[in-house]
Write a protein that binds this DNA or RNA. Structure first.
Lengths: 131, 131
DNA sequence: ACACTTGTGTTAATTTAGTAATACAGGTCA
DNA sequence: TGACCTGTATTACTAAATTAACACAAGTGT
């Protein structure tokens, strides 16, 4: 768990933790079922108040990334089931609908939106570190 | 200049002003070179502090949407339309980045996202009323 | 039972974003 | 010139977000 925070980066500490753990999970460095550090442990490691880590974990649980077992710890959730995928696609579909509605409202063609998507994806692939 | 603000909409007043003026410019209701209301005038019309309007105008100038002539007033920038489009694309780009990041976290491939975009677009074309 | 660890909850301090009050500087134009 | 416009700058107030301090409840394992 190599997590590094920038205390005065403009983005809240708890958000930085959320983002980095999300990335660790999506990149496979944190496997499903794996236990992640106890709130106090990570807090001490990052030199941050435990409540801040607790909030990050809560957000992650809300997002379905992790599961908490009250007195046992926090674990990466098994988000691999096919049924879950349908749910995920539905969420993405809603966002896409909103995006398309906005684009239409702005007078931007859907073709351009598709181009932007591919373009942005390429950009994300090449540059893995920014800001 | 029909601008309407919702004081407690969650989004800041100055941001609402920025958004609506951006839209007015991009839709052509505010032509390039046209003068827009003096800060105090618009402030009184919207029942808002002049500083709030001033901030909105400042953001618009920073975005290249308008130009300010110190003692003469504020005018829609000459390249208002093209710049406005760039602005719109930037807004969409931000949303797309967020969408792609989310898709990655969910383990959904970008190809599938592109497919969903096209699919949803087709759905929007055929059925113009639902939700 | 008991020491220890886990996450939870309540409350307060702190920081930041947003808005407001007010005075200022520099032009226009009768 | 001088009243009257413009946008600008400084300062302070308010509300919300963020973080911190600290006590709590509930399992684990010896």
């Amino acid at each position: 768990m190599q997590i590094h925070i920038s205390p005065h980066d403009g983005v809240p500490i708890y958000q930085q933790i959320v983002n980095q753990i999300k990335y660790l999970v999506s990149s496979g460095r944190l496997a499903a079922g794996e236990e992640l550090p106890a709130i106090r442990v990570l807090a001490e490691k990052l030199i941050v108040n435990p409540n801040t880590v607790a909030r990050a974990y809560r957000e992650l649980e809300l997002a379905g990334i992790v599961e908490k077992r009250r007195t046992a710890g926090t674990y990466v959730s098994d988000q691999g089931s096919p049924l879950a995928r349908r749910e995920r696609v539905k969420i993405l579909t809603d966002r896409i609908d909103a995006l398309l509605a906005e684009a239409q409202h702005m007078g931007v063609a859907v073709d351009d939106v598709v181009k932007l998507v591919q373009q942005r994806h390429a950009a994300m692939q090449s540059t893995r570190n920014e800001k």
